[in-house]
Design a protein around this nucleic acid. Sequence first.
DNA 1: TGACATACCTATCACTGAAAGGCATACACC
DNA 2: GGTGTATGCCTTTCAGTGATAGGTATGTCA
Lengths: 112, 112
Amino acid sequence: MAPAPSAFLNGVPELLVLRLLRDREMYGYELVQAIREASADQLTFAEGVIYPLLHTLERDGALSTRRQTINGRSRVYYAVTPTGRERFDALSAHWRTLTGAIATVLEAPRHA
Amino acid sequence: MAPAPSAFLNGVPELLVLRLLRDREMYGYELVQAIREASADQLTFAEGVIYPLLHTLERDGALSTRRQTINGRSRVYYAVTPTGRERFDALSAHWRTLTGAIATVLEAPRHA
DNA sequence: TGACATACCTATCACTGAAAGGCATACACC
DNA sequence: GGTGTATGCCTTTCAGTGATAGGTATGTCA
């Protein structure tokens, strides 16, 4: 009933999107491929995941948009706002904490 | 429609349960606390998560059970079967691959 | 007596990411 | 001219997971 803000390990697409946009602005279609390429095809988030996510992040003020038409095709470029940067820092810290804890359990020599 | 066997990053409770049981047999209530303690309170999976999971793993042949009464209280001890060990190895490898890929994206100096 | 820890269990729900679509333009090729 | 593919945007629907919140029963200790 009170779902955690970012329940457990979810929110990885968000984490990656914010990370990539931290370097430079990108548009949705570009992000989908950038994630795949940056992870050497290990991670694939389809457009059905990325687009709604971008809309949500924009609505929350974590991203700002800029529309541009190139070669007759319209693109929507997304950039990280200060709010988005804070959000990334929080998500990132949370991610490291959790994966660190899991690694601890996995690698512990023996559990008494 | 064709949900991956272990969709994306899910299955962490399963991973941890199999890991802990690899060392020694334990009962449900004990596992709940063991996970919390082994992770220094960073990870908490309630009984509502652990018990159904144990039942599923037993049904799948990954765990075997042994009932024992101690101090008037009944306990169900779970132990990992060979099938369970394989399952753990697969889950573990999958986990390392994914978190490794995410780390790559997060830590990359810059994305061109 | 009452409270709390132990020990098992189930039913229900929200949310995420997965899947599968749809729309439109540009470009290459035959 | 027609067909196919890549680009670029979008939405709707769905399954599965873990979260929540219950319920039962015994032992112990104040």
